[in-house]
Nucleic acid binder design. Structure first.
Length: 505
RNA sequence: GGCGUCUUCGUCUAGCGGCUAGGACACAUGCCUCUCACGCAUGGAACACGGGUUCGAUUCCCGUAGACGCUACCA
């Protein structure tokens, strides 16, 4: 094969939200394109007019924008191989369908869906192929005149690919090696339907990949069984020399049980399967998205990249640039991967930890707002700094761990384990004493507080920190007490101490 | 049913004829410690089964089993 510029594509159908498995397929295409200095095309495969869902196309584009996967050409991205929406390429397909028809490599069939159903009921394992097409109503069994008459009468028909039996068709897969399927088990696939004057996936796919000069087809494993058909189609058109290389990716499986990962699994186990929140225009149903659930796009990308591929060493945290450098399509796993969303959350945590506190402020501000809290940017940044290393996977997990920064405890549960253990008469007396000391304390910086209190504690053999935490926090959580007091300031600290001393009597 | 693909700890995986089978997530324990965490350390946990080939198989070959996928005028 000649040294063509690498061109790959991601070609979803606008039938709903973008599935997370599709995101991974797109990601691998992106990594592959980038590392070869190639191009990534975004094509819309809307040849099934009955399944079109408004808004889906826009949703998909927005998803990739959020995820940081960039396309070089395609719907909404421009390029000179367009149009990139298959429904706008009718004339092109028509031409190629006619070519196949004229060369006797395809034929017209008039069998209605009802007739086909009847046949399938009548004959076990019925398949429309070389062994059965002679008993069907098609241009091979009907006279030329009859066919023309039926078309003139407006009879609906389809064009079927005439597959020659008894040939071992080889598909060379970059991940799986040589895959052989005998053409006899292939059926005469419908390539084109007169009803909507649109081709089916198989024809459109081959014609578009050829015309768009696609060099590598990287797609899900569910396409492996039809890959031989695609090879045959390339040959029928005389494009075998420029046929793209194939790579069939392993599937993403349910976290528990067996089978393909589905939207239902996400609902059932509580994790998103779509990148963005999706509002189904037909059912009105709302499905959660990674973005809205508080995931960082980098974390989603990193997590997904490692589901079916790894750099061959122990490195797990990688930037997009590193992945582009290290990615190797031939090293992808062959077996499907169960979708380990718990590990996905761990990735999110790692990325939160790597972020500057300042960058996390907007997300944190949103959480505070939802809880009716007003805070300055400096305050939020400070709290994030003190609290983000706590057990959190999402910024929203911060709230129950840090609410006391913004609202003073109003009640103290004396049955609480922490309070029970750390509050008694001695503690109350110590806190009263500490209150007096702090009333005289002018400097409320961490250093000054530490100096004053450590000295007092040491000379008197006190351990004031836990009782103080009871008083200021009302629970066994939070940062270093000096940091907390410094954050609250003198006025708020003293106020909380006085209130608590009353309430805990 | 037919065809295809796949098979290492619970999960994601490393391994490409000779290793005490490695890492990560999750879990457990300990240390640290003013709470909760972080961090650090430790632990349990896997080559589906049966035949070959070979001095030697997790690794190569053949079966078996299981899982998954496809089997539409959907992609």
């Amino acid at each position: 094969m000649s040294e063509r510029k690498v061109r790959v594509r991601f070609a979803p159908s606008p039938t709903g939200a973008l599935h997370i498995g599709g995101v991974r397929t797109a990601l691998y295409n992106y990594l592959f394109a980038r590392q070869h200095g190639g191009e990534l095309i975004f094509r819309i495969e809307d040849t099934d007019s009955t399944r079109f869902v408004p808004g889906a196309e826009e949703y998909i584009i927005e998803s990739f924008k959020w995820l940081g996967i960039h396309f070089d050409e395609g719907v909404s991205f421009g390029g000179n191989h367009g149009p990139y929406r298959q429904s706008e390429r009718r004339d092109i397909y028509k031409k190629y369908v006619n070519q196949l028809l004229e060369e006797g490599k395809a034929y017209i069939a008039f069998d209605t869906p009802e007739e086909l159903d009847a046949k399938r009921n009548e004959i076990a394992n019925f398949q429309y192929d070389a062994s059965t097409r002679s008993m069907m109503r098609n241009s091979l069994t009907l006279s030329k005149e009859e066919v023309e008459q039926m078309i003139a009468d407006g009879k609906q028909y389809v064009v079927r690919f005439k597959i020659e039996p008894n040939e071992d068709v080889h598909v060379n897969d970059m991940i799986r090696g040589d895959v052989v399927i005998n053409s006899t088990i292939l059926d005469d696939k419908v390539l084109y339907k007169s009803a909507d004057e649109l081709p089916t996936y198989h024809l459109a796919n081959i014609v578009d990949d050829h015309l768009m000069e696609v060099t590598h087809v990287i797609r899900g494993e569910e396409w492996l069984p039809s890959a031989p058909l695609h090879v045959l189609l390339y040959r029928a058109f005389g494009w075998a020399d420029s046929m793209p290389a194939f790579a069939h990716l392993p599937l993403l499986l349910k976290p528990d049980g067996k089978g393909k990962l589905s939207k239902r699994d996400g609902d059932r186990l509580g994790f998103p399967v779509f990148p963005l929140e999706w509002h189904d225009p037909k059912t009105g149903e709302v499905s959660s998205g990674y973005r809205e659930s508080g995931y960082l796009p980098e974390a989603v990308i990193n997590f997904l990249a490692l589901l079916g591929w790894n750099p061959g060493n122990d490195q797990e945290i990688m930037t997009m640039d590193e992945m582009i450098r290290l990615f190797d399509i031939t090293k992808c796993s062959k077996a499907g991967a169960k979708f380990d969303y718990v590990k996905g959350m761990w990735f999110n945590r790692e990325y939160i930890l790597m972020k500057d506190n300042k960058e996390l402020v907007p997300a944190f501000a949103k959480i505070l707002q939802e809880n009716g809290i007003q805070a300055t940017e400096e305050q939020m940044e400070a709290v994030i700094g003190m609290m983000k290393m706590k057990k959190i996977n999402f910024i929203k997990d911060l709230w129950p761990l840090c609410d006391f920064f913004f609202t003073a405890p109003t009640q103290f549960d004396k049955t609480d384990k922490f309070i029970k253990k750390n509050w008694n008469e001695q503690a109350a007396a110590d806190m009263a004493e500490l209150l007096q000391i702090l009333e005289a304390q002018e400097d409320f910086s961490v250093e000054a507080l530490k100096q004053t209190i450590d000295t007092w504690a040491e000379t008197n053999g006190k351990k004031p920190w836990n009782p103080w935490r009871v008083v200021l926090v009302g629970a066994g959580k939070g940062p270093d007490m000096y940091e907390l007091a410094a954050f609250l300031g003198k006025e708020e600290t003293l106020k909380r101490m006085r209130t608590a001393l009353e309430l805990l009597k």
